[in-house]
């Protein structure tokens, strides 16, 4: 954690009033500091990871020699048939499970079986119903031990920025599905861990809200450039958002291919009708078959 920033937020009496831009700069500084702390160019590196679970009769192999990496500031998607063990992979990266073989390192440091190194956004928003939206959004930093009051002021700036102004004191059940996902994404974005794991965050939304949220995410991500590993079932979503896509096979999952997505940023929705985009989409479809 950047000490200078800490001091500033703690002792500056004008802190409450400072602008959105400053809040963003502060976050970016923090992230850069963290990235600079390690010399590795990789935010995440997974090396030959195997995993199996005890089934009814025999052990079921879920992951078979998975290797992948996410460079710093890169948006990487995992595409694969459902039930191919993508969520298991997230649990391994997050430290909830230990792989049977292989290594997982985050910013150059092995983190096998260790929690507290990633910011995570689960499939359902999983906002805490007894917390207001602003208190939900600060949860990641609160766990890291920062004071609630200073965090709330920061959260309010951010909520304004992501279109949740006026909902700071609302409870999650008062928000629509899309708004809940925005809050859940903000909770992950404000977490003090640089690498973000997003587990099918839009799968429960209707098609219209979903494309809204994709646009929103692309824009927000392009402004902040965090390292992201993103699980999705939608090829279009993966192509629109990512710098690279890993296509996984059915269970036991292994990497079929890594594909770079060459489109320039900022990306906008027009991309969806670009001929090259359509060609890539067909390529991925062929790989998934």
């Amino acid at each position: 954690m950047n000490m200078q920033n800490e001091d500033k937020t703690k002792f500056n009496p004008n802190y409450e009033g400072d602008g959105q831009q400053q809040a963003q700069e502060r976050l970016q500084q923090q992230m850069q500091q963290r990235a600079a702390d390690s010399s590795s160019p990789l935010a995440l590196h997974i090396d030959q990871v195997d995993m199996s679970f005890k089934g009814a009769k025999e052990r079921v192999q879920v992951l078979d020699g998975i290797s992948l990496s996410v460079r710093k500031g890169e948006f990487v998607s995992l595409l694969g048939p459902s039930g191919s063990g993508k969520s298991t992979l997230f649990h391994l990266i997050g430290g909830l499970l230990k792989p049977e073989a292989g290594d997982i390192s985050i910013h150059g440091k092995s983190v096998v079986g260790e929690t507290g190194h990633v910011s995570y956004m689960p499939q359902q928003a999983a906002l805490f119903p007894w917390r207001t939206i602003e208190d939900n959004v600060i949860l990641g930093q609160e766990i890291a031990g920062r004071g609630k009051r200073e965090l709330r002021a920061e959260a309010r700036e951010w909520l304004r920025n992501v279109g949740l102004e006026g909902y700071e004191r609302a409870y999650p059940h008062m928000l629509s599905g899309g708004m809940q996902q925005r809050a859940a994404f903000l909770r992950a974005l404000l977490s003090p861990h640089e690498l973000m794991l997003l587990d099918e965050p839009f799968s429960a939304l209707d098609a219209l809200t979903r494309s809204d949220m994709q646009r929103w995410l692309v824009e927000l991500w392009e402004r902040h450039r965090r390292s992201v590993l993103f699980i999705t079932h939608s090829i279009e979503e993966a192509l629109l958002l990512s710098d690279a896509i890993y296509v996984l096979s059915a269970r036991p999952a292994s990497v079929v291919q890594r594909m770079d997505v060459p489109f320039a940023r900022p990306r906008r929705e027009e991309l969806l009708s670009n001929p090259q985009f359509l060609r890539l989409k067909q390529d991925v479809q062929a790989l998934l078959r």
């Binding site: 430290g95 929690t115 995570y120 499939q123 999983a126 007894w130 890291a144 861990h193």
Partner: peptide, 28 residues
Amino acid sequence: DRMMLNYMRMAGASRMQLFWKLELPHAL
């Protein structure tokens, strides 16, 4: 709730944080 629990654990919550911030309010 499993999702909330996974979120808290991945974020590195301690046993005490899990209890006070998640399990207790959830059990009310």
